[in-house]
Design a protein around this nucleic acid. Structure first.
Lengths: 135, 135, 135, 135
DNA sequence: GTGGTCTAGACCACT
DNA sequence: GTGGTCTAGACCACT
């Protein structure tokens, strides 16, 4: 599993983690019934409090994306609500709009922003590939 | 001035507003010494609580980007900390990275994401232009 | 609202509180859109940690029984999942079975248990009535 | 010995088992010095982890209700703390109160609840009888 | 080892 | 005032 927290971000870390895991469940990057890192392990990896991870897992379990099995671990649900994908992507478009506008407001030209985007694509490929290998 | 709040976003409303005004001060979109809408007026426009706007103005005043003149209104500072621009853009690159990664995690191809970005650019042009007119 | 926690019970306090509020939402004892005590107030009343109440409210919000409005308070949802009532009552029958068996295992005759039940009915009437008045 | 675990219950499995064995020791349903099933056997019967049973036996041994004789098995203590019965019954009354209240909160009339109780009594008789035969 | 409950307390965000 | 995030840490329950 690949999760990365941006410390300075306005988005609370728990929401960052939540959204990343949710995206990976819905997109199939995390296959159904696969096991997630334990609460403590992920907390340690990301250097956050175990309670924070626990609440993320609980929230996603309440959404029927994860299943917490006492004493066993936490797993991607076997039956995923497929229609959730839609709304996720709609929200994502909003997010993109906000960020693009933000760039223009910072006085960056369309070309400047696009250049940063291209760099972001490259670094994303690298990270996601390496995590895919790691998993 | 152009400010837009995304209601569903993980980024708190006050930070959305704060970042947008900050960006416009630093980029010069809002020229030094220009007057901002009153707390009440902006609160009304954006349908948020006046206290929220007040805190935003106070925060930006503490950053020396705004000046609150009692009985007169709130103005863009005449002397702007120019080096702030740098760090803002660096943070912006992080934000872009996060969002691009998020897209890939949602299972969108690079092409899919780029298409959404192009749409976002178009809608940003429109909005910013019209607000330019309004201002 | 009437909530009572049994300290010695094997059932964790958060679950006791959760179940009582859930029952009152589903049964209509708490009418839709009515306001619940604030997290802190209920925590204080029941002498538990605010975090405990917060998690109860969050859990019930995830079940679409409650609605938490930031800065405003917590309210009974206006659209309640009516079919939930069924499963609640089924679970309740299981609970009764368990408790009745427990009584017999303690060596109490059917008459003994029934006597305790009658007393429990009386005390329940009194409590629920008085809470009704209080509300 | 008759033990039954209710899987969905808010009461933890280990406490369910513990309370049932305790009740039967105190009530005499399990006579002093009688032998309990082995840890593994009971674990298998109830489909729980052997460690769970072990902890239950250890806890009850610490209460002087059971005696674990290494290499021999686990037995009901020969000298039972008779006064324990009292407190057990007092706790039982609390439990009944909680459950009765819960029923009323679910919107069930006293008659409804009493009907469920009568059914529970009947099913308890059947189960306890058959287990008596089995023992 | 795994998750689950609970406390105490700091600090943030929204009305 | 309201809810929301996060930490640190204790102790319990299940495999």
């Amino acid at each position: 599993m690949f999760v990365r927290v941006e410390r300075g971000s306005a988005v609370p870390v728990s929401r960052q983690i939540c959204e990343q895991i949710r995206a990976q469940c819905l997109s199939g990057a995390l296959p159904p019934d696969s096991r997630l890192p334990s609460v403590r392990q992920l907390a340690h990896e990301l250097a956050v409090n175990p309670n924070t991870i626990l609440r993320v897992y609980e929230r996603l379990a309440a959404e029927n994306l994860l299943e917490m099995r006492h004493g066993e671990g936490t797993f991607v649900a076997t039956v995923l609500p497929l229609d959730r994908m839609e709304s996720q992507r709609a929200l994502y478009a909003d997010e993109l709009n906000r960020v693009i506008r933000q760039g223009r407001m910072l006085g960056l030209s369309r070309g400047d922003v696009q250049k940063l985007i291209d760099e972001a694509f490259e670094s994303a490929e690298t990270q996601l590939l390496s995590s895919g290998t790691r998993q």
